[in-house]
Design a protein around this nucleic acid. Structure first.
Lengths: 145, 145
DNA sequence: ACCGAAACGACAGCATCCTGTCAATCGTCG
DNA sequence: CGACGATTGACAGGATGCTGTCGTTTCGGT
């Protein structure tokens, strides 16, 4: 029982896997001059707006708690983030970005902006926004079930 | 220097990372009853149509040769694929899927079809196809440079 | 025919992410 | 207030993916 919609889903899966590989490599390139990696960038970006617990960061990126825990410990060790007491949970410390972490994040974002502008110009903002809306619906459909 | 197109690219990156995490978990669930994983499925799917060398499989998924090499060796060990001489390259053996591998692939595809039909029905085939076309253009723009 | 560049497989080492398990903590319900 | 389930961090172990390096093979230019 195959329909055009089902086939489109299968194709989307392949595209996402391929794009993920490409973007991981590109992300590492953009993070490397600041001494970071894609994995560390994910954690820093997650706590840029507000401090979060390790488990909250993991849920934001659909990773396991333990994966984020190790990266978070390294970030704290390097002074890019710091643990602070969580008023609403004694054991679940909050991970807060430090000024050094914010500086590294800003550096990486600078390279990302230039790259994103170039790619956006070549693909087209309208199509990208439409694709984003569809991907958001896919994410919601997969998580609401 | 930020434009709507650039912002859309940044949002797309986040969506792809999140979706990748989700799809990896779902893919493992669908592959697990057949004793496989997402990584093994990628290799099996790549050689379903025609035998390929390890390096060709790696390029198809934007992975490193060495990552695919280890998976391929395990697949051969488990009897799901087999190395065969490559007439056009003495050292680069061709990786061919075996009947057992094809059976496992068919099992997994059966679960994927049901899942894809459900998701496709909830999101809409037209939007998915449009998103696929845009993602294909993104992939092409990123690789042609 | 020869030589240099590129591609490939093998091996070692490391980074990232997963599962399973456990105890501590929190929230909820009775 | 007490008990139970859910959440969290910690630890151990394993699976997946990357980089670096080496020798072999192939291909293109001279």
């Amino acid at each position: 029982m195959r329909s055009p919609a089902g086939d489109a889903v299968s194709e989307l899966v392949v595209h996402v896997f391929r794009l993920n590989g490409l973007l991981l490599a590109l992300g590492d390139q953009m993070a490397e001059p600041s001494g970071q990696t894609s994995a560390r960038w994910r954690v820093l970006a997650a706590i840029d707006d507000a401090p979060l617990t390790v488990a909250q960061v993991a849920r934001a990126w659909w990773l396991a708690r333990q994966s984020v825990q190790r990266i978070a410990d390294v970030l704290v060790e390097d002074g890019l983030a710091a643990y602070e007491p969580n008023p609403s949970h004694r054991r679940a410390q909050l991970l807060r970005i430090t000024p050094a972490g914010r500086a590294a994040l800003r550096e990486i974002r600078g390279r990302q902006v230039a790259w994103a502008e170039d790619l956006g110009g070549r693909v087209g903002g309208a199509d990208l926004q439409a694709a984003n809306a569809t991907l958001a619906r896919v994410l919601e459909a997969l998580t609401s079930s």
